[in-house]
Simulated scan of single mutants.
Amino acid sequence: MLDNLIAFFSSGANIGFFIFALFAIGGAIFMISFTKVVHMVVSLAVTFLSLAGLYVLLHAEFVAFVQVLIYAGAISILMIFGIMMTQHKKQDEEPKRTGHEVLLAIGALALFGIIFFAVQQTTFPEADLPQVDDNTMEIGKLLYNKYVIPFELMSVLLTVAFIGAIVLAKREED
């Protein structure tokens, strides 16, 4: 098992994967552990950025760019604006539970160890996928040829949801 670990860390891509995976998992754990909403959004943004790094390692540059642009940028900023523009009543903070944090850290490390061990013991089949020169062009071809109807239905669904949110927000103002 130790030779598998040494072989895993002998590649720069594997080290990058390990770092991005740690940031993604750490950001997600911090997001559910923090009590202040702004800190939660920042840790969620760290998770989004580390997922974009994982997409780059998978040679999905377009998906990584969209991840950074939409999720890490727009969604995080929108959440921060929403937090800043709403009124929050001061609530009594919950008492610190150090035992809870210790159990959370032990559970996260145990889960990481189990997943790491399972991945090390698994043999993955070789995939014979065709390599393309331009991922973005291939995504565009699929979106506007084969998947044009689901793509348009999704845009209509998002537009209806946006209009519904505006109607609900107007109704709360009145």
Rank of each mutant, 00 (worst) to 15 (best):
F116G: 02
L51H: 02
P95N: 12
L49H: 06
G53Q: 02
L69F: 11
I106W: 07
N14S: 08
N14G: 03
D133V: 05
G140I: 00
E172H: 11
I149T: 07
A110Q: 03
Q91G: 08
I149V: 13
P130V: 09
I166M: 13
G73W: 02
K90E: 15
T136C: 11
P95Q: 09
R171T: 04
F23S: 03
M31K: 00
L58W: 11
K141N: 09
Q121C: 10
D92Y: 10
G73F: 03
V56C: 10
Q131D: 10
G26Y: 05
T86S: 09
T136H: 11
I139W: 12
R97S: 10
G27H: 04
E61G: 13
A108K: 00
F23V: 05
Q131L: 05
V41E: 14
G164E: 07
A24V: 04
L109T: 05
A118R: 01
K36E: 10
F23T: 02
I106M: 13
L57N: 08
E138M: 04
G99L: 08
F62W: 08
L44E: 06
Q87F: 03
I6H: 06
T35Y: 09
A72K: 01
N14L: 08
M154E: 02
L49K: 03
I114A: 07
M31S: 13
I149K: 12
F23E: 01
D92I: 07
H100S: 06
V160N: 02
F81H: 03
H88G: 03
E173P: 00
V63G: 03
A165L: 15
M137N: 03
G99D: 01
S50V: 02
Y55P: 13
V38T: 08
D133W: 05
Q67E: 14
D134V: 00
